[in-house]
Design a protein around this nucleic acid. Structure first.
Length: 685
RNA sequence: GCCGCCUUAGCUCAGUCGGCCAGAGCGUCUCACUCGUAAUGAGAAGGUCGAGGGUUCGAUUCCCUCAGGCGGCUCCA
C-alpha cells in the first residue's frame, strides 16, 4: 500500500530553539500550526534525530518542524497510537505483558502476551477505550532512567521489556534500531500523565519521540489481530499482535481505508472467479491452479508476445522435463540447501527378491524447483565455442515448490508455477554489456504490458552463501554497473542475495501504488564449477562461462495476478479474453452483427455475438461486468446504414460508425497493443 | 510449520439458543416478451449445511480429528 502524498510539498519550516526553552515553544512562536492535519508534532535536530516538542536543548539550535501529514509525522502519530493501544489493553487485560509496538508502513502494531487471543469484539472494546484515552489528552512525558538496574526494577512485571533492556545493556552487537523500545545511549521511559493531576497513568520503555499529548492522534482504527513470534523467531513464544492504522486526519484515514477497499475489489483471487479465469480446486491441492479458457487466452496472449520479444532479442527456446533424478539437484546444490522447499522425492525402480531383500536399491526422483540444472545440461550436451556466446536459453519452465501451508496465496504465491526463465552463458568480458542490455530488455518488455514505474534492489552476499567472496565482489560490481548504465533508480539490499548468487530485483508500482517484486537477474557463481561447464576460447584455452539467471515476469502466474490487480480485471484490449461483443437490439439485427464479427475474426480478433434472449440493456450490463473492451450494438438504423454503434466499458458511446471503419479502428487499437481502456474520446471515425 | 478466524445451492450470504419438508438474491434451465446503450416477467431445477468420528432419543447446530480457505508470523533457491 502506498504512503499517501504529503499534503504540503513545501520544504519543512525551520525554527531556532533557544537554549533552555522547548522546541514546542519555538514552534508556537513561529506561528506554526499546533492542530489540524499539518500540526507540528515533533522536530528534527541538526543530526537528523527526531525530538519531542518538550525537548529543550542546552545550546541554541536550528531545527526542522515535522508536520503530522509527513511520513515522519505519521510515523510518530502511529507510534504514539501504539502506546495508547497498549495502555488500553493493559486496562482491559491487566495480565497482558507488553512486547514491542513500532510504527510500520501505513500503520502500527503492538505485541502482547495474553492467555487468550484477542477476539474481534475485544478490538471494538479496545478502540472504545483508546478513544477515551485520546480524549483525556494525556501528556507523553520522557524520562531518562538513571541505570539499567533502575530500569529493570521498574519493569520487573514486564518480562519482554526486561529482555530488551538486557540485550541493550549486555550486547551492543545486536541491532536494536528497529526496536522502538530502546534508543541509543540511554534508556528512556515515556510516561502518560493525566493532564490535570500530572499523575502517571501508564508508562512504557521507549526511545520516542511522541506527539505532545494523546489528543494529537487525530484518527485511528484497529485493523486486525494475528499471532507473531517474539523478536521474529519461530523458536520464541508467539505473542498476539494487534494491527492498527493512524493518520493526521479523518479524511486521510478514510482515504487509506478506501484504498484498502479498492485493493480488495481488485483482488485477483476474487476477479479470477468473477471473470472465470482460473481456480484452485481442492481436489488438486493447495497452490495448484487450473486455467479456465478465458484465463488461458490472456495467458497465451501474454506468453506469445513475450516469446516474440525474446526471439527478436536472440534467445533460443528450449524445453525440459518436470522431474529428474536427485543426483542432478545434488550437483546443483538444491538438495543440500533447499530440500525443505522441494516436494519430497519419488522413490523409483527399487527391486526386491522373494525374501524382501533389496536386489536393486532404486533412486529418488524430484519435481524440479528450478529450471537451471536442466539448462546446464543443454549447455553441456556438446563442446561449446566462444563463437556461440552469449548463448541465451529460454524456457517457460514450470516448477514446483513445496511452499509452507501458511504462505500459499492465490497466484502470487503458489506451489506450481511457470517461470519465464532464461540462462545466459557468456564469456567474462561479455558480462557487463550483457547485463546492461538485459536490464533494458526487462524494462522495455514490462513497459509493453502497461507497467511504467520501476525501481531496483541490488541484493548482495547473504550470511549463508557458497563460493569465494572475491567472485561475489566481482559479480556484485558488474550488477551495480549495469544498474548505473541503465539509469534505473536502485538501492542496495545487503545480505539479501540468493545463496549462490547476488541479484538485481526489479520492483514495479501498480495502478494503486503498491510495489511488487517482479523480475530477477542473478550472476551465478556456482554452476560453472558445479556442472564443470566449459567453452573453448579464441586462444584455444578451455574456460568457464559466466552464467546469468533471469526471469522477467518471475512467474507467469504471479505476473498474471499482478496485472489482473493493476488493471482491476479490465485487461487491455490486446489481452482481453473477449475483445468485442456484438449486441443486437432485437433478434433480427443479429445477422448483421454476425457479418461484422466475421470481418473481425478474419483479423484474428476475439469476438462474440450475444444472441441470448436477455434484453439489450441486460447484455450491456453483463458484458460491462465482464470488462469486455468493445461492445458493438446494432439496431434497425445501423443495419440500414451498414453501421454499428460502439459502447465502451466506461459507458461512453459512438453511434452509427460504418462497419469497415469500425473494424479497422478496433484492429488498429489491438494491433498496436494499446494498454489504455478504449473510450469514445479516443476514437475519431 | 505456528497462532486466530472461517467453510450452508454454481456465486454472495441468511438461518437453526440441538427437534416438523434448510431460506434469499444472483446465476442456470423452461416459457412468454423482440425491446436503442448497466438488471423484462412468470415458472422450474439445484443443498447427506467441507469430510470423518464422538456426545445425544435426535447433530447442519455441541465436542474432537482432518481437509480447504482467510489474516498474520516464520519462510521464500
Amino acid at each position: 500500500m502506498s504512503e499517501q502524498r504529503p499534503a504540503s510539498a513545501a520544504p519543512a519550516p525551520r525554527v531556532v530553539v533557544t537554549a533552555g526553552t522547548t522546541a514546542g515553544a519555538a514552534v508556537r512562536e513561529a506561528g506554526l500550526p499546533g492542530k489540524g492535519p499539518d500540526a507540528v508534532v515533533v522536530v528534527r535536530d541538526p543530526n537528523g534525530q527526531l525530538r519531542d516538542l518538550s525537548w529543550s536543548p542546552e545550546a541554541d539550535v536550528e531545527v526542522e518542524a515535522v508536520a503530522a501529514d509527513t511520513d515522519d509525522g505519521r510515523g510518530v502519530i502511529r507510534h504514539s497510537c501504539a502506546h495508547v493501544l497498549a495502555q488500553a489493553v493493559q486496562q482491559q487485560f491487566p495480565d497482558a505483558k507488553l512486547g514491542i509496538g513500532p510504527p510500520v508502513k501505513d500503520g502500527f502494531y503492538y505485541d502482547f502476551d495474553v492467555d487468550k487471543p484477542f477476539t474481534p469484539e475485544d478490538l471494538q472494546a479496545l478502540e472504545k477505550r483508546m478513544k477515551q484515552i485520546i480524549k483525556g489528552a494525556q501528556r507523553f512525558s520522557r524520562r531518562v532512567v538513571p541505570s539499567v538496574d533502575d530500569a529493570k526494577k521498574e519493569l520487573a512485571a514486564e518480562p519482554y521489556k526486561l529482555e530488551l533492556v538486557d540485550i541493550k545493556s549486555s550486547d551492543n552487537t545486536v541491532d536494536t534500531s528497529e526496536v522502538m523500545e530502546v534508543g541509543a545511549g540511554e534508556l528512556t521511559i515515556y510516561d502518560n500523565l493525566d493532564p490535570r493531576s500530572g499523575e502517571q497513568v501508564w508508562g512504557d520503555l521507549c526511545r520516542g519521540p511522541h506527539v505532545p499529548t494523546t489528543k494529537h492522534i487525530p484518527a485511528f482504527k484497529l485493523t486486525r489481530v494475528a499471532a507473531a513470534y517474539w523478536r521474529g523467531s519461530e523458536h520464541n513464544p508467539q505473542l498476539q499482535r494487534i494491527y492498527g492504522t493512524a493518520w493526521e486526519s479523518n479524511e486521510a484515514l478514510d482515504r487509506h481505508l478506501e484504498l484498502l477497499a479498492e485493493a480488495e475489489r481488485r483482488d485477483h483471487r476474487k476477479l479470477g472467479a468473477e471473470l472465470d479465469l482460473f481456480s484452485f480446486p481442492d481436489e488438486i491441492g493447495p497452490g495448484l491452479a487450473v486455467w479456465h479458457p478465458k484465463g488461458g487466452i490472456i495467458r497465451r496472449a501474454m506468453e506469445d508476445y513475450s516469446r516474440r520479444r525474446h526471439e527478436e532479442a536472440d534467445y533460443e527456446f528450449v524445453y525440459t522435463p518436470h522431474v529428474t533424478k536427485g543426483q542432478l539437484f545434488e550437483t546443483s546444490g538444491h538438495l543440500q540447501w533447499y530440500k525443505d522447499g522441494m516436494y519430497p522425492g519419488i522413490h523409483m525402480d527399487a527391486e526386491h527378491d522373494a525374501e524382501g531383500n533389496v536386489r536393486k536399491p532404486g533412486q529418488d526422483y524430484y519435481l524440479k524447483p528450478m529450471n537451471c540444472p536442466m539448462h546446464m545440461m543443454i549447455f553441456k550436451s556438446r563442446g561449446r565455442s566462444y563463437r556461440e556466446l552469449p548463448l541465451r536459453l529460454f524456457e517457460f519452465g514450470t516448477v514446483y515448490r513445496y511452499e509452507k501451508s501458511g504462505v500459499v496465496h492465490g497466484l502470487t504465491r503458489s506451489r506450481g508455477f511457470t517461470q519465464d526463465d532464461s540462462h545466459i552463458f557468456c564469456a567474462p568480458d561479455q558480462l557487463a554489456d550483457e547485463l546492461t542490455n538485459l536490464l533494458q530488455f526487462v524494462v522495455g518488455l514490462l513497459t509493453d504490458y502497461g507497467l511504467t514505474d520501476f525501481t531496483a534492489d541490488l541484493s548482495t552476499r547473504p550470511e549463508k552463501f557458497v563460493g569465494e567472496p572475491e567472485s561475489w565482489t566481482v559479480a556484485e560490481a558488474a550488477l551495480e554497473q549495469a544498474l548505473k548504465s541503465a539509469g534505473l533508480p536502485y538501492k542496495i539490499d545487503a545480505g539479501a542475495g540468493a545463496f549462490y548468487a547476488p541479484k538485481i530485483d526489479i520492483h514495479v508500482t501498480d495502478a494503486i501504488g503498491r510495489a511488487w517484486q517482479l523480475s530477477t537477474l542473478q550472476v551465478d557463481l556456482q554452476f560453472g564449477d558445479r556442472f564443470d561447464l566449459e567453452f573453448q576460447d579464441s586462444d584455444g584455452e578451455r574456460k568457464r562461462p559466466w552464467i546469468i539467471h533471469r526471469a522477467l515476469f518471475g512467474s507467469i502466474e504471479r505476473f498474471f495476478g499482478i496485472l489482473t490487480e493493476h488493471y482491476a480485471g479490465a485487461f487491455p484490449a490486446w489481452l482481453a479474453p473477449v475483445q468485442v461483443v456484438g449486441i443486437p437490439i432485437a433478434d433480427e439485427h443479429a445477422e448483421h452483427l454476425r457479418g461484422v464479427a466475421k470481418s473481425l475474426r478474419a483479423k484474428g480478433i476475439r469476438v462474440e455475438v450475444d444472441t441470448g434472449d436477455d434484453r439489450m440493456q441486460k447484455k450491456i450490463r453483463n458484458h460491462t461486468t465482464q470488462k469486455v473492451p468493445f461492445m458493438l450494438l446494432a439496431g434497425g438504423k445501423d443495419v440500414e446504414a451498414g453501421a454499428v454503434s460502439f459502447r465502451f466499458r466506461d459507458g461512453t458511446q459512438v453511434n452509427g460508425v460504418p462497419v469497415d471503419r469500425a473494424v479497422a479502428a478496433i484492429d488498429e487499437w489491438i494491433t498496436r497493443r494499446e494498454n489504455a481502456s478504449p473510450s469514445a474520446d479516443a476514437f475519431t471515425f
